[in-house]
């Protein structure tokens, strides 16, 4: 029998959105186009047009090593060129942001190669080779996993995911990396660590509330879909909780 991954439990729209983002066979809807140069500017690791710095010679130039893993695993483009390992970090608002830290890690692990994610309650960092990072970032920013107002790139000073939104609907940011322009479009004026940019980077208009409510991957009892409306998800969570609690006592699921 061929195994078909389920990706996650649940019958609600939130559960469906989570599965959709995790399933690599689903092509995510492209919502905006951000030039590669702009992504390089927001990341702030190198100047646009600057050559990639490397930490080792290209793999083709390295001496042959008799290693079974090298024969099994094809290196990513960044690894092939010996790029440095760099990072991007996202902070996602609890108010119906289209992605969430844990969800981000699951999705990235299914969709990308050669990454090292770190997951926290309100932010998620992912490290990988610089060339790969820029490619992955364009997916993360241009598709439905990003909303200019409720998701933002924050290398440091990330506080804001659990706070009320500001008047213009933006997630609170103490160092105001992105601003809402007069034309209703969100523009980055600082890179992800807070260094002012030479020019503004336009990431488009925020998505409307109805769209966010139907495409979010977080449960929210006031703003969106409450968890209690998805009994299948609750059953799954309770099962995981029970097994974790009993872990030290040889967990065995009871026969029904």
């Amino acid at each position: 029998m061929k195994y078909t991954p389920q990706y996650g439990p649940g019958t609600s729209v939130v559960a469906e959105n989570r599965r959709r983002q995790m399933d690599p066979s689903v092509e995510l809807t492209k919502m905006r186009k951000i030039p590669d140069e702009d992504i390089v500017l927001i990341l702030g690791h190198r100047a646009p047009g600057e050559a990639y710095k490397s930490v080792h010679p290209p793999i083709d130039e390295l001496p042959e090593v008799d290693c079974p893993m090298r024969r099994l695993v094809k290196p990513t483009e960044g690894a092939m060129h010996g790029d440095r390992v760099r990072y991007v970090q996202f902070a996602d608002s609890m108010f119906n942001a289209p992605c969430q830290p844990y969800q981000r890690t699951y999705s990235e692990m299914y969709r990308f190669r050669g990454i090292d994610p770190g997951t926290l309650s309100g932010r998620q960092i992912v490290e990988c080779r610089e060339r790969d990072l820029e490619k992955y970032c364009s997916t993360l920013i241009e598709t439905e996993m990003f909303d200019p107002a409720r998701v933002s790139l924050r290398g440091a000073t990330v506080h804001g995911h659990s706070l009320r939104l500001s008047e213009d609907g933006m997630q609170f940011d103490a160092i105001q990396r992105c601003i809402m322009g007069e034309d209703g479009r969100v523009k980055y004026v600082k890179d992800q660590i807070g260094v002012p940019l030479d020019r503004q980077v336009d990431v488009g208009k925020p998505l409307d509330d109805d769209w966010l409510k139907t495409h979010t991957t977080i449960f929210h009892s006031l703003m969106g879909t409450p968890l209690r409306e998805d009994p299948e998800y609750i059953e799954y969570l309770q099962r995981i909780h029970t097994l974790r609690t009993k872990y030290g006592f040889m967990p065995k699921e009871e026969k029904r």
Partner: peptide, 12 residues
Amino acid sequence: QNIPKVIPYGPA
């Protein structure tokens, strides 16, 4: 929520 005078964390 406080808006700090200087950037408090990170490389900047």
